[in-house]
Amino acid sequence: MGRYAAVLFDLDGTLCRHEQAIEPVFHGAFEDLGVEPVGEPADLWTAMRAITEFEGETEQLADGIARVAADHDCELDARAWSEAFVDRLDWTDVSFLPGAERALAAARANGSVGLLTNGPEPRQSTKLAALGLDGAFDPVVYAGDLDRRKPHREPFDRAVATLGVSPERVLYVGNSLEHDVDGALDAGLRVAWLDADGDGPGDRRPTHTLRSVDELAAVLGA
């Protein structure tokens, strides 16, 4: 028996990427409201990273764009803008990251394979279907539909309980130091962190560091 009885994957930025160009979505949301666009997507991401408490992703988007609008002295219905933004997103426009399919095959050969993602089920299940991954994971935990998302330990605990193995026998594979590494380690799991940019983990200590997700096969001995 190998070191790990199960592998849990993150989805976005670990197994797949969203291919849709975001600039037309960002500016189009303003157009839908009849408001002159202000700022750029990068400004929104910066504003959203500063938000630590929110009810859901639509609310986080609304809070983020409200900050961008305030910086530009723009009056904006932030909630309506966030809904227009989400309505313009095409969640079927996704593709596998290089090496993802090999990583999945190695994980299946190793043992149980699950998915733990911070997104809500309607969006993430659409991506899974587009990738041909319907039914590929057990369990699937959509933390976006829970009271607490990663990095809180609740979604990790839920996944481990479904797997029926001890946390230290579960390897979580993800690309976020904050959400994946911190959350999984806090819940007692082991972590393979995908450092695609080669930035290094800083003060954090993931169990394994991968430059590409297909390096997971070597970690699992596949």
Rank of each mutant, 00 (worst) to 15 (best):
45 W>H: 13
186 D>P: 04
90 D>I: 04
130 A>I: 09
135 G>F: 07
45 W>N: 08
139 P>M: 11
44 L>D: 03
132 G>K: 04
13 G>M: 03
212 S>H: 15
206 P>M: 06
156 F>C: 08
138 D>H: 14
47 A>F: 02
36 E>N: 07
182 D>K: 04
21 A>H: 11
99 G>C: 12
171 L>E: 00
145 D>L: 06
167 P>A: 11
11 L>I: 12
41 P>A: 08
7 V>R: 00
189 L>C: 07
62 A>N: 04
107 A>L: 06
137 F>C: 05
182 D>S: 12
146 L>E: 10
61 L>C: 05
74 C>A: 15
210 L>V: 10
220 L>P: 00
40 E>Q: 13
151 P>S: 06
91 W>H: 13
151 P>V: 07
197 D>M: 12
52 T>W: 09
45 W>L: 15
176 S>Y: 00
73 D>H: 15
180 D>P: 04
49 R>D: 15
173 V>A: 01
97 L>D: 01
207 T>D: 14
25 V>Q: 01
194 L>Q: 01
6 A>S: 10
188 G>I: 07
180 D>N: 05
56 G>D: 15
143 A>D: 05
56 G>N: 14
211 R>G: 15
103 A>H: 00
190 R>L: 09
129 A>V: 07
76 L>F: 06
94 V>G: 01
68 V>F: 07
145 D>M: 06
189 L>W: 00
156 F>S: 03
121 E>S: 13
150 K>T: 10
24 P>Q: 08
33 L>D: 03
182 D>M: 09
14 T>E: 04
151 P>E: 06
1 M>F: 12
137 F>I: 09
72 H>K: 11
214 D>N: 11
145 D>I: 08
170 V>T: 06
8 L>H: 01
28 G>D: 09
156 F>W: 04
48 M>W: 05
89 L>P: 01
196 A>T: 13
147 D>S: 15
47 A>K: 00
107 A>V: 08
65 I>R: 00
28 G>R: 02
189 L>R: 02
195 D>E: 10
3 R>V: 14
142 Y>T: 02
214 D>L: 06
134 D>M: 06
107 A>R: 00
67 R>S: 11
